[in-house]
Design a protein around this nucleic acid. Structure first.
Lengths: 148, 148
DNA sequence: TTGCGGATTAGACTCATTCTAACTGTGTTG
DNA sequence: CAACACAGTTAGAATGAGTCTAATCCGCAA
């Protein structure tokens, strides 16, 4: 179900966009709302379908634009797996992804700081990493990840 | 420079293909040779260009086929980074990848068993992972990775 | 010699993503 | 108020990695 943004989320959006000199628009709000409503790592197309329910005139190009903008100002993260469609994730805390072979679902896996640190430590001198992507691929008996 | 396969490498190829009921063909040999000759994580297209120098009639489709076959029988690994072209890597030891922002080059990063273990340990119960992909993205002052 | 099956091939096709050029809406300046 | 600037949006065309298809090739067994 797509709710309106909370006051807090709207401010978050506003601030992040503002910082990079961009505005809140109805389309950006709709796309952001979709991302927060169901944190199941949707593809662009899924975001598009869901956002259309609320804003029928919305175009696919705009969804691409919005998502790119959000990535640019640090509101969401891209998640890639092999060469499948890019998925989007509003969870900004450092975390890994687990891709369920059977269902295709992507689950967030919490990444404790000490593990992150040990990972950084394997880089030889001279290598300076800004981004680390960790993805598991396998089977999960677990039920759906909790909506949050 | 593209050399012929060593006796050892040829046997390796033969055995791996044989195990999954497939044969060594001149095309597969050429593609495998290219992969071993320069371990710079080439794209399909790069493999194609290089292999053509040695076997001019070779088709792109065959390069795709050969690489898929090799992946299937565990001779090489695919390396994906964001949605760029898939690259191929004949290094089978567990390792991470570092993608240099400036040059686009991909470097292998050794992955000590204890780090691998600590990574596995962050999976909640019920999650069973067969493959872990780790990729860094950033800048490297280091010179080219040693040919090996 | 014929037939079989796996391998190879060229080219058509798919589909996520990017690009382009026109349009919209809002705010600003004269 | 009229003209303009400009960011954002839009539909549709273009791109390009990868996949599919149908024809052909080639080594081997009957």
């Amino acid at each position: 179900m797509i709710q309106n943004l909370t006051e807090h989320d709207r401010e978050h959006l506003q601030e992040a966009l503002g910082k990079s000199g961009q505005k809140v628009t109805p389309q950006r709000e709709a796309v952001f709302t979709v991302l927060l409503a169901e944190r199941d790592h949707p593809t662009v197309d899924e975001v598009f379908q869901r956002a259309r329910e609320v804003m029928p005139g919305l175009s696919l190009a705009t969804v691409y634009n919005c998502l790119e903008t959000f990535v640019g100002c640090g509101l969401v993260r891209q998640v890639n797996h092999e060469r499948e469609s890019t998925r989007y994730c509003p969870n900004l805390a450092p975390h890994a992804h687990f891709r369920d072979k059977a269902t295709g679902r992507v689950h967030d896996i919490e990444l404790p700081p000490e593990v992150l640190k040990s990972l950084r430590s394997i880089l030889p001198p001279g290598f300076d990493s800004e981004v680390i992507e960790i993805s598991f691929h396998g089977r999960a008996q677990a039920k759906d990840s909790p909506a949050n």
